[in-house]
Design a protein around this nucleic acid. Structure first.
Length: 294
DNA sequence: TCCCAGGCTTGGT
DNA sequence: ACCAAGCATGGG
């Protein structure tokens, strides 16, 4: 077996990329066929596929360099974490909506994605819809990233890296806005890219901060408020106590937890699901959207 | 044509 | 502290 390929076996409820792709947390993971998938994050790429199956498990094959695996993709997929202890807490609760959400989303995980890409992606996500977010991000990569390659079986496939702060900071506003679907968000992204490029905003500094401090730091950036900030702390910094509240989550609070005010609801979540609120939110968000858009 | 989309900034009270 | 308008753009 090639050292660039590794096999991992999971129970079917521990890892399901179809669920993750649909969950709105990631915009550059793709289903290529019945078995095969690709994922891109920053300047990295991976190909993975179902290799074999038993009634309870799939064995997955992942193709990337061992260095990328150890330093990035292992953590991206969060494979060192067991979600079953979270699932047990949820299933032993009396929260029927959340239990239904979990049953609809077996194999969900919270990805730990490239921080810079996550920041830009979720600035794009505001007042936007998921297909257009994906389209916009792909366009950004194609226009301003650079071309690179990854292995799929014996073949080499091309992909475009996510543009760095340096690459974006060189653009003029008219250029970035005209050549993209960014709309009014182009200004936020250009300003952020320039601040990062000039080291006025240090991405490294975010990594060691606790949730509240990281969130406050992120919200000092124009274009990042509470919701986008929580998406970045959740998917870019992998702080699972994050709890992004968007229009779907507001709908859930109103329609599925009518006995609570919004503050009472948040207290309930923080009390009962302390340390994995972000996972709970992901299950709820997935389930609610799936109900509405079959 | 109007409404919505993983919201935020700005400028009023 | 709270509230409304305005914001770019494409799709239903």
């Amino acid at each position: 077996m090639d050292s660039n390929r590794r096999l991992l076996t999971f129970s079917k409820s521990e890892f399901n990329p179809d669920i993750i792709i649909e969950s709105g947390q990631v915009f550059r993971m793709n289903k290529l066929s019945a078995w095969g998938y690709s994922a891109f994050s920053g300047d990295k790429a991976i190909f993975f596929r179902k290799f074999s199956a038993t009634p309870q498990t799939y064995t997955w094959e992942f193709q990337c360099s061992s260095q990328d695996w150890n330093q990035f993709w292992l953590h991206y997929f969060d494979f060192n974490r067991s979600y079953s202890k979270y699932n047990q807490v949820i299933m032993s609760s009396s929260d029927e909506f959340l239990k239904s959400a979990l049953k609809s989303a077996e194999g969900m995980r919270i990805l730990h994605q490239d921080l810079w890409e996550t920041m830009v992606s979720f600035i794009i996500s505001q007042q936007n819809n998921i297909p257009k977010i994906q389209k916009t991000i792909n366009q950004l990569c194609f226009n301003y990233g650079h071309i690179s390659h990854f292995e799929v079986g014996q073949n080499s496939e091309k992909f475009y890296t996510f543009p760095t702060a340096e690459q974006i900071s060189r653009l003029k506003l008219e250029e970035l806005q005209g050549g993209s679907l960014l709309g009014y968000r182009a200004k936020y992204i250009l300003e952020l890219a320039q601040a990062v490029q000039k080291r006025k905003f240090k991405l490294d500094k975010l990594i060691n901060l606790k949730y509240q401090d990281a969130l406050a730091e992120l919200q000092s950036i124009k274009g990042i408020g509470p919701k986008v900030g929580n998406c970045i702390t959740l998917y870019g910094l992998h702080l699972l106590e994050s709890y992004p509240i968007d229009v779907w989550m507001k709908r859930i609070i109103e329609q599925d937890y009518p006995e609570f005010t919004e503050q009472e609801y948040l207290d309930y979540i923080n009390k009962n699901y302390s340390g994995f609120q972000g996972y709970v939110q992901q299950l709820q968000f997935f389930f609610k959207r799936k109900m509405k858009t079959p």
